[in-house]
Measured scan of single mutants.
Amino acid sequence: SSQSQGISSSSTSTMPNSSQSSHSSSGTLSSLETVSTQELYSIPEDQEPEDQEPEEPTPAPWARLWALQDGFANLECVNDNYWFGRDKSCEYCFDEPLLKRTDKYRTYSKKHFRIFREVGPKNSYIAYIEDHSGNGTFVNTELVGKGKRRPLNNNSEIALSLSRNKVFVFFDLTVDDQSVYPKALRDEYIMSKTLGSGACGEVKLAFERKTCKKVAIKIISKRKFAIGSAREADPALNVETEIEILKKLNHPCIIKIKNFFDAEDYYIVLELMEGGELFDKVVGNKRLKEATCKLYFYQMLLAVQYLHENGIIHRDLKPENVLLSSQEEDCLIKITDFGHSKILGETSLMRTLCGTPTYLAPEVLVSVGTAGYNRAVDCWSLGVILFICLSGYPPFSEHRTQVSLKDQITSGKYNFIPEVWAEVSEKALDLVKKLLVVDPKARFTTEEALRHPWLQDEDMKRKFQDLLSEENESTALPQVLAQPSTSRKRPREGEAEGAETTKRPAVCAAVL
């Protein structure tokens, strides 16, 4: 046999249950609850290399294929790409003598399909299967379609040439079993990697079954959420508030809700932002270029202005709740996480202390139980975000031990490091100062900020419009641009040419 590394010779191994799959997660993409704000000051410096380099560890398999027929071997997927077919160049070659004697062998292509993985959001991997055969590759009886790919989820059954000719079961060793999710959700989405997690739940990458488009699904544990919100009269209202707010909003710089499922837990389906959180971008770069800050901040102002015009105060604006559309420097941003939002009543007064301390406005800290506050709290938070983006460190921090965090904020005395700000323009610093004003009545509004000289930049605004146009074009394009080929190089076993392929839609398939 010419099988590559990772293939075992026996096809009769006992199949494990899916609970053996491991679970991976990374930083929070968007969480309903406010958790302790991640610290920006503690960015690790590059460490000196050791005298002796450690040995390379043996790579762990990321997936496993269990053979369902004699003549096929099990495969431990270690590499990122595997070709399957009769050709000797394939990493998994159909060359077992037992297999060659079967009637089905002649229906398999020289290069029938490939399984591979690509880097997705949060640097996690996504597994795909890609059909290159004349007679078809099927996943859970659905045709992939020649020249098309679809994501592979845990426990997928792979069939060759005929939908009933099941050859492998695919085990993704990095994700959960699909069966743990409600059927209504599974009918519409293929669940994938964990993108982030918080005290009350997690955010998962998923794929729409009909279109193969990526989405983010925010899962909120009702049990954990009820415990964490025990002081509230009705904890469920917080989730329902977020859903109702998101459904009503329609702005290019605000995250869109696509679906909602109320089962044992809450499942909020949101558009996916491939670039992750602004927080991670700031930490990764230490600070952002001023031109990049301007492009992002302009969009934040437009989003918050839209919220305020619609009578909504976000109340928890922070870099973790600003998501980026891509890994590119120039990209769209979207505001997310409306769990603490407040729809303005007639009095415009709110007395609930919520939000993240580092970003809270002075009037929030001094008015607990005594007075109210209004939309100006969001403008203060925007000032803190702009400060961080321009400088790479927070204006107020618990680690300045000589003054408490509350006193720093209520006095408006931010930590100004001259040598850092020497590289920032006077106009940018002036806008920061106009937003970090203790008196909410004297603080800049979103309208005033948008009129500030720093943002009178036609090149930046043109760039934003171009990015918007690109997004609109990409969302308007159909996901499947061509029909699967019906040509046949070899006959199917026991049926006429093209008899099955043309009847089945290529579900969740995307043209390369």
Results as ranks from 00 to 15, higher is better:
residue 265 D to N: 12
residue 398 E to G: 09
residue 356 T to L: 02
residue 346 E to H: 15
residue 500 E to V: 07
residue 341 S to Q: 01
residue 338 F to V: 02
residue 282 V to N: 00
residue 337 D to G: 01
residue 337 D to K: 03
residue 450 L to D: 03
residue 280 D to R: 09
residue 267 Y to F: 10
residue 354 C to D: 02
residue 245 I to M: 02
residue 371 A to F: 15
residue 489 K to T: 00
residue 492 R to G: 10
residue 491 P to R: 01
residue 419 E to V: 08
residue 405 L to W: 13
residue 269 V to P: 01
residue 362 P to S: 02
residue 331 C to G: 10
residue 479 Q to R: 11
residue 254 I to F: 10
residue 501 T to S: 14
residue 475 T to H: 03
residue 294 K to M: 15
residue 470 E to T: 14
residue 277 E to I: 02
residue 454 W to P: 03
residue 321 N to V: 00
residue 279 F to W: 10
residue 303 A to I: 04
residue 470 E to H: 09
residue 439 D to E: 04
residue 261 F to V: 05
residue 484 P to V: 04
residue 279 F to P: 02
residue 441 K to M: 13
residue 394 P to K: 10
residue 286 K to T: 13
residue 492 R to D: 06
residue 250 N to M: 05
residue 363 E to T: 01
residue 335 I to E: 03
residue 312 I to M: 09
residue 462 R to D: 13
residue 382 L to Y: 02
residue 488 R to T: 02
residue 415 N to I: 06
residue 275 G to N: 03
residue 318 K to T: 00
residue 306 Y to P: 00
residue 456 Q to H: 12
residue 380 W to D: 00
residue 345 G to T: 07
residue 384 V to S: 02
residue 289 K to N: 09
residue 463 K to N: 08
residue 276 G to H: 09
residue 465 Q to A: 04
residue 324 L to N: 04
residue 335 I to V: 15
residue 480 V to M: 03
residue 293 C to P: 04
residue 255 I to V: 06
residue 425 S to T: 12
residue 382 L to W: 04
residue 463 K to H: 00
residue 320 E to W: 02
residue 497 E to K: 08
residue 249 L to K: 15
residue 244 E to Y: 13
residue 376 A to K: 04
residue 259 N to H: 04
residue 283 V to L: 13
residue 375 R to H: 10
residue 409 I to W: 04
residue 392 G to A: 13
residue 413 K to V: 08
residue 390 L to C: 14
residue 276 G to L: 11
residue 477 L to P: 15
residue 335 I to K: 03
residue 243 I to M: 12
residue 320 E to Q: 08
residue 399 H to E: 00
residue 509 A to I: 05
residue 396 F to C: 00
residue 364 V to T: 00
residue 502 T to V: 02
residue 337 D to R: 03
residue 349 L to A: 13
residue 476 A to V: 09
residue 359 Y to N: 03
residue 486 T to E: 12
residue 346 E to Q: 12
residue 321 N to R: 00
residue 377 V to R: 05
residue 294 K to G: 11
residue 300 M to T: 04
residue 260 F to C: 15
residue 483 Q to R: 08
residue 326 S to A: 11
residue 467 L to S: 03
residue 312 I to G: 02
residue 273 M to D: 00
residue 332 L to T: 08
residue 349 L to I: 08
residue 441 K to R: 11
residue 243 I to H: 03
residue 367 S to V: 10
residue 446 T to S: 13
residue 368 V to W: 14
residue 492 R to H: 09
residue 447 E to I: 12
residue 435 L to C: 00
residue 320 E to K: 02
residue 321 N to L: 04
residue 358 T to N: 11
residue 263 A to M: 08
residue 264 E to C: 06
residue 421 W to C: 04
residue 471 E to K: 03
residue 336 T to W: 04
residue 281 K to M: 10
residue 351 R to M: 06
residue 378 D to V: 01
residue 503 K to D: 07
residue 309 E to W: 15
residue 335 I to S: 01
residue 455 L to D: 00
residue 374 N to A: 08
residue 253 C to I: 13
residue 510 A to C: 14
residue 286 K to A: 08
residue 321 N to A: 04
residue 302 L to Y: 09
residue 322 V to P: 01
residue 342 K to Y: 08
residue 261 F to K: 06
residue 247 K to L: 10
residue 296 Y to I: 07
residue 323 L to R: 02
residue 511 V to I: 04
residue 280 D to Q: 04
residue 342 K to D: 01
residue 253 C to E: 09
residue 505 P to Q: 04
residue 364 V to Y: 05
residue 277 E to M: 01
residue 326 S to E: 07
residue 493 E to R: 00
residue 334 K to N: 14
residue 330 D to S: 05
residue 482 A to S: 05
residue 257 I to F: 04
residue 304 V to A: 13
residue 309 E to M: 00
residue 337 D to N: 00
residue 305 Q to A: 11
residue 381 S to T: 13
residue 343 I to P: 08
residue 273 M to A: 03
residue 340 H to L: 15
residue 357 P to I: 04
residue 470 E to Q: 07
